[in-house]
């Protein structure tokens, strides 16, 4: 994969569009995180892999509490409504899926998108990968979007 295939600004634009359209229903709630991102007490990561001649991975990582809030926003649930584990995995995985699908469209050669995976830890990208890491602030909560382009 060529290093210039995906630019950091393009990844931010995708994340912004995904959150505005699917999560918040309006733009303006996702912005760059100022300062150091606090380590999540209970981490959760969702990702999709792109397979093919040009391969890579798009991931969203945050803490479980933020993933719950994202799920509530996606499903139009009340602020105190409990989120079931299946809904959490499905909704958080779908955010990564939509980000990943749009990142894939930036690549100069067509690949195939894997199914979303959700785990407490994001697997390391292969050595030599080019990685963009966007530290973002969603409604005051830290969230990281990671796009790795496997070399």
């Amino acid at each position: 994969m060529t290093a210039a295939a995906v630019e950091q600004d393009q990844v931010f634009a995708i994340a912004e569009e995904v959150f505005a359209a699917m999560v918040d229903g309006e733009p303006g709630h996702l912005r760059p995180w100022e300062g150091d991102v606090p380590a999540p007490a209970e981490p959760l990561a969702a990702w999709v892999d792109v397979h093919g001649e040009l391969a890579g991975r798009a991931a969203v990582a945050t803490d479980v509490a933020t993933a719950h809030a994202l799920t509530r926003a996606l499903l139009g649930m009340g602020a105190d409504e409990p989120v079931g584990p299946e809904d959490l995995v499905d909704a958080f995985g779908e955010v990564a899926n939509v980000v990943g699908g749009n990142v894939k469209a930036l690549l100069p050669s067509q690949g195939t998108l894997g199914l979303p995976q959700v785990r407490s830890d994001l697997p390391a990208a292969p050595a030599g990968s080019l990685t963009h890491e966007l530290r973002l602030d969603w409604r005051g909560r830290p969230l990281v979007v990671v796009v790795s382009l496997f070399q």
Partner: peptide, 12 residues
């Protein structure tokens, strides 16, 4: 859709 989240959004 294999995502029930997306099914609920589209169906809604």
């Amino acid at each position: 859709d294999d995502s029930r989240t997306m099914r609920r959004i589209v169906a809604g």
